[in-house]
C-alpha cells in the first residue's frame, strides 16, 4: 500500500518582487512501513519539500497524496522539527499529552499512553521536567515521543538530530531504528548527513542544488542490524559521497 505519493511537485517563493524557484518538479512515493531518506546539500529545498507534505506550505503545481486513515478519518501526520519546537512552558509530560488532549481523549487513557511512550523512550524520570532542563538529545527524544504518541500514519522528520553532537546523534539513530522495528511507522527523513541516511534508510533520494530535483535514487540493501564499519556500508557511503561531490563541483 502506498503511504505517500508526491506528483510533479514544485514550489516557488515570492519575497517582495523576487521569485525563488525552490524546488522541483519532483515525483516519488513511499510504501507503507518504509523508511525513505531525502538527502541533499544545504539550500536544496528539502525542508520545503517536507513542510509542503505536512501542509505547512502550499505547492505551486503538483499534488501530495496521503491516503486516509484506515478508520476513515484524515491521515495522522507526525512532524519532528530540527530543534526547539517543544513548548517551553509545558512539562515533558504535558508536551507529549498535547495532541491527545487536543483530540479530547479521555484523561485516563491519555495518562496511560503518555506513560508508556515515556518509558519506551527512556524519558520516565523527566516526566515533570521542563524542556530547558533537558539536554539537546533528550529534548529531541521528547519531541519524537510527542509525535509518536499520535501513532502517525506518516512521520516526517526534518534533520532532527543535526544540532546534536555526533555521539548523541548516533545514539538517537540507533534508538529510532529500534523503535521503528516495533511500530512499523512510515518515515520520511530529511538530512544532509550521508552516514545518517545510510544508517537509517531503506531507500535514499538525493536532491540536487536549488531548485531541488531528484538526481539519484538508491535502495540501501543492508540488514536491519547495521554496522557503520562493514564493507557494504562504506561502499554506499563512498558512492553517495561521489554523487554529492559532483553536485558541489558543477551545481
Amino acid at each position: 500500500m502506498t503511504a505517500l505519493k508526491v506528483t510533479d511537485l514544485s514550489i516557488t517563493f515570492r519575497e517582495s518582487s523576487r521569485e525563488v524557484h525552490a524546488l522541483g518538479p519532483v515525483d516519488f512515493e513511499i510504501e507503507a512501513g518504509e523508511f525513505l531518506c531525502i538527502l541533499g546539500p544545504t539550500g536544496c529545498g528539502k525542508t520545503t519539500l517536507l513542510r509542503t507534505i505536512a501542509g505547512l506550505e502550499k505547492p505551486d503545481t503538483g499534488e501530495v497524496d496521503i491516503p486516509l486513515h484506515p478508520d476513515g478519518g484524515g491521515p495522522v501526520i507526525g512532524f519532528v522539527f530540527q530543534q526547539g519546537a517543544l513548548f517551553p512552558w509545558m512539562s515533558i509530560f504535558a508536551n507529549i499529552e498535547f495532541s491527545l488532549k487536543a483530540k479530547k481523549i479521555d484523561k485516563v487513557i491519555r495518562r496511560q499512553k503518555v506513560e508508556s511512550i515515556l518509558e519506551m523512550m527512556g524519558l520516565s524520570s523527566f516526566s515533570s521536567s521542563y524542556p530547558h532542563q533537558l539536554s539537546g538529545g533528550m529534548q529531541q527524544r521528547a519531541a519524537l515521543a510527542r509525535s509518536l504518541v499520535m501513532d502517525p500514519d506518516l512521520l516526517l522528520m526534518d534533520e532532527p538530530f543535526s544540532s546534536l553532537d555526533m555521539r548523541t546523534s548516533q545514539e538517537l539513530q540507533e534508538n529510532l531504528r529500534e523503535l521503528l522495528k516495533k511500530a512499523s511507522t512510515t518515515v520520511l527523513f530529511v538530512t544532509h548527513n550521508i552516514e545518517e541516511a545510510v544508517y537509517l534508510a531503506g531507500e535514499v533520494i538525493v536532491l540536487g542544488h536549488r531548485p531541488g530535483r531528484i538526481v539519484r535514487r538508491e535502495i540501501i540493501d543492508l540488514p536491519d542490524r547495521r554496522s557503520r564499519l562493514s564493507d557494504t556500508f562504506t561502499e554506499y557511503l563512498v558512492s553517495l559521497r561521489k554523487t554529492f561531490e559532483s553536485l558541489v563541483s558543477n551545481p
Binding site: 526547539g84 512552558w89 498535547f98 488532549k101 487536543a102
Partner: peptide, 25 residues
C-alpha cells in the same frame, strides 16, 4: 511561528492553540 505550526500538526484547533499556546507565550 514554529510553536503554532507544531500545535497545528499535533491536531490543535484554533481555540485550543489559543488557549494552550498563544496565551502562555
Amino acid at each position: 511561528k514554529m510553536h503554532l505550526e507544531a500545535a497545528g500538526i499535533l491536531g490543535a484547533g484554533r481555540l485550543f492553540a489559543f488557549r494552550h499556546v498563544i496565551i502562555p507565550s
